[in-house]
Design a protein around this nucleic acid. Structure first.
Lengths: 109, 109
DNA sequence: CATTTAATCAACTAATTGGTTGATTTTGTC
DNA sequence: GACAAAATCAACCAATTAGTTGATTAAATG
């Protein structure tokens, strides 16, 4: 599975995006991380597993707890992929704007 | 399903990203669009359906053909979501850099 | 009108996903 | 040593996904 496959598919779940948002505020033990979610610890653990497989989260064992921290850099490729189309949607927007409100001097000014 | 759910999950498939890449070069009839892919037309049609449900592609009927065009603006929310973490991974990178090569004058210069 | 082309539909399959529960393992604490 | 807490494991379930094939519909063309 490509990096992008794993990243985008990890980000496609709202629980996992919420996990990322929580971890952005700092490292958390799994049980603390799981608290706000209305599902079993097992379920959260699986989500963390998906994020970890995608490289978005790092888990390290400390005693009986597992500490999770965000590896935000791993989102870069996905970001860059989307960024490649940003110019495209700006162009589309510009084209639409020119179509709706032609000034007749857009090219010169 | 949230917008982000649909967008990220649509982007999680390599065939669908390839479809987007093709459409970025211009509008295409479904059969033309499907040509390079090693799968049935039905399969490609389903992928286009997923992209269309996510608002990433627009399909319009013309005679017996279906013409597909990219709606790149629909990627903006996903882009912005990721962008919110860009600062975060830059910070992490900077922190690492300071850790590896402390110059002692990084703050002043 | 007969044929070909574009596409969808319906039905099926195998694999994956997101969740559950109950039992177990490991670790810290009284 | 006994107990509570943190987490995993194993098994299961229902829904979804990515693909297939064969039949059908609809439009263009000889």
């Amino acid at each position: 599975m490509s990096n992008l496959d794993a990243t985008f598919s990890a980000l496609a779940d709202p629980t996992r995006r919420a996990i990322i948002a929580r971890l952005a505020e700092g490292e958390l033990a799994l049980s603390k991380l799981a608290e706000p979610f209305d599902m079993s610890l097992t379920a959260v653990s699986k989500h963390v597993g998906v994020l970890s497989d995608a490289g978005l989260v790092e888990v390290d064992k400390r005693g009986r707890t597992r500490h999770c921290r965000l590896r935000a850099e791993q989102m870069q490729d996905a970001f860059e992929w989307l960024n490649g189309y940003q110019q495209f949607w700006h162009d589309q927007f510009d084209a639409l704007a020119r179509h709706l409100a032609p000034t007749g001097q857009g090219d010169k000014a």
